Simulated scan of single mutants.
Amino acid sequence: MSRARLGLYVFCRRSLFEQCYELQPTFQLLLQRPDRLALNLTEVASYTERPVEDTGLIHLVSGVDEMMSIYQELYEAKRIQE
């Protein structure tokens, strides 16, 4: 798990953890929220002045493999710019 300024992102196998007795209180809170990561792929700055509710165009990430692919594409684009 990792904490970010605009939210908490948890990458895991949901079915594995939602049955864990020790994590039940935490998962009950987490499962009240959307369970897919929504990214604004046009926003590449590490800091933004936009209001949280102004999401812009979002892309719903389907899983860890897709997240890794997005990361690699952004990393390559940044490396080419330098």
Rank of each mutant, 00 (worst) to 15 (best):
Y75R: 07
F11N: 02
G63L: 02
T48V: 04
E73V: 11
M1S: 09
L16S: 13
F11L: 10
R14F: 11
S46K: 11
E73D: 10
L30D: 01
L57V: 00
L6Y: 15
V44N: 06
E66P: 03
A4W: 15
M68D: 09
E43Y: 06
F17R: 06
N40P: 06
M1P: 12
E82H: 15
C20I: 13
F27V: 08
F27R: 02
E49L: 07
Q24I: 12
V10R: 12
P34R: 11
L23W: 07
R5P: 00
S2H: 15
G7N: 10
K78D: 10
M68T: 00
E82Q: 13
Q28C: 01
P25F: 09
P51Y: 12
E53N: 08
R33T: 01
Y9H: 15
L30C: 04
D65W: 09
E43H: 12
K78S: 13
E82T: 05
Q24T: 08
R13A: 02
S46E: 10
R5C: 05
T26R: 14
Q81L: 06
T42G: 10
Q28A: 02
R14L: 04
Y71E: 14
A45P: 03
R14W: 14
V61H: 06
E43K: 04
L74C: 07
M1E: 12
Q81D: 02
S15A: 13
K78T: 06
E76W: 10
E22V: 12
E82V: 04
A38K: 12
V44P: 10
L8F: 15
L29S: 04
L57M: 08
L6Q: 12
R3K: 14
P25K: 13
Q81R: 11
Q24N: 11
Y47G: 00
V61A: 01
Y47R: 04
D35Q: 08
V64K: 12
C12T: 10
D65G: 03
Y71A: 00
L41H: 03
R3S: 09
A77Q: 10
L30A: 02
Q19C: 14
L31N: 01
L37H: 01
R36E: 01
Y47N: 06
T42S: 15
T48F: 05
L57F: 05
L37G: 00
S2G: 14
F17N: 12
I58K: 02
Q32S: 00
S46W: 02
L23I: 03
F11R: 02
L16V: 14
I58M: 07
S62W: 05
N40K: 00
P25T: 08
P51T: 04
V52H: 09
T48H: 00
D65E: 05
T26A: 12
R33E: 00
L60T: 13
S69C: 06
L8A: 14
V52P: 11
A4D: 11
M68F: 02
R50K: 15
V64S: 07
Q24W: 03
E18I: 10
V44A: 06
G63M: 04
C20T: 14
M67Q: 06
S46D: 11
E73T: 15
H59G: 04
P51E: 14
E43P: 09
Y75P: 02
